[in-house]
Design a protein around this nucleic acid. Structure first.
Lengths: 130, 130
DNA sequence: TTATCTGTATATATATTATATACACACATA
DNA sequence: TATGTGTGTATATAATATATATACAGATAA
């Protein structure tokens, strides 16, 4: 699993870590029961404090993505995959809504917005909105 | 101009104010040269500190949306409307990108994403992505 | 002048983000 | 059993971001 963090993004470090791991899990990149890198290892790799990686893991645990066992490690736990999908869906909705509000404010038509969306989604599906 | 702020949104108060005014200006709701509500008036109306409204206005001035004159007030200043549009466009791009990343992680196809986008944009244009 | 608009500056409180460091549990293996 | 080394945990602290109260200063009209 590869995680990239930016100190200039405005998004807190723990949140960047949290989101990338969440996405990796939901995308199936890490399977049920599989062990995640230890907070220490990850902290060293990302040149970040242990507390920061711990916070990311804590949040992921609260949301039901992982389970941590003291002395052993942290493990993927997809007890309720459908609920986790719902969480992602509502976050997607929020992000789209922000974009829509801004688009309307500058008079950007829906067609143009869909165009950008398609391009971002990937070259192989550019015409899915036409 | 109507501004709505939420204390639970996570987005800072000054940023909420900033974005809503920015959108109103770009949408043409406030014209070039027109006076904005004073930081005092706005602060009272929103039940927020003067410093908070001032900060929103400061940021808007830095971005070239308004000009403030001590003792007189703050005024819409659209010196470079095209540049301001560019700023909005790149922010839209960022927001769409976040949504796309998340959508891909849960295997949500582009068509579904466009569907949500259309609904959010408004009932009257639901089929613009089909 | 003075009343009353306007924005400005200073000092301060609170919450969020990030850190260092010392602690405790699990487990292999000498 | 002892101990080395891997795990996560807890406490105290620093740095930054957010929001505030209050005193100050310019503009303008009565």
């Amino acid at each position: 699993m590869q995680i990239l963090i930016s100190n200039t993004s405005g998004e807190p470090l723990y949140e960047q870590i949290e989101n990338q791991i969440k996405n990796a899990i939901l995308a199936g990149g890490i399977a049920q029961g599989e062990q995640l890198p230890s907070i220490r290892f990850l902290a060293k790799e990302l040149r970040v404090s242990i507390i920061t990686t711990k916070r990311a893991y804590e949040n992921l645990e609260q949301q039901g993505f992982i389970k941590t066992v003291q002395g052993k490690g942290t493990f993927v736990s997809l007890d309720n995959l459908e609920r986790l999908r719902e969480i992602s869906l509502s976050q997607i909705e929020e992000e789209l809504d922000k974009a829509v509000t801004r688009a309307k404010s500058i008079g950007l038509p829906l067609a143009r917005l869909c165009e950008r969306l398609s391009i971002l989604y990937g070259e192989d599906s550019e015409d899915a909105c036409d």
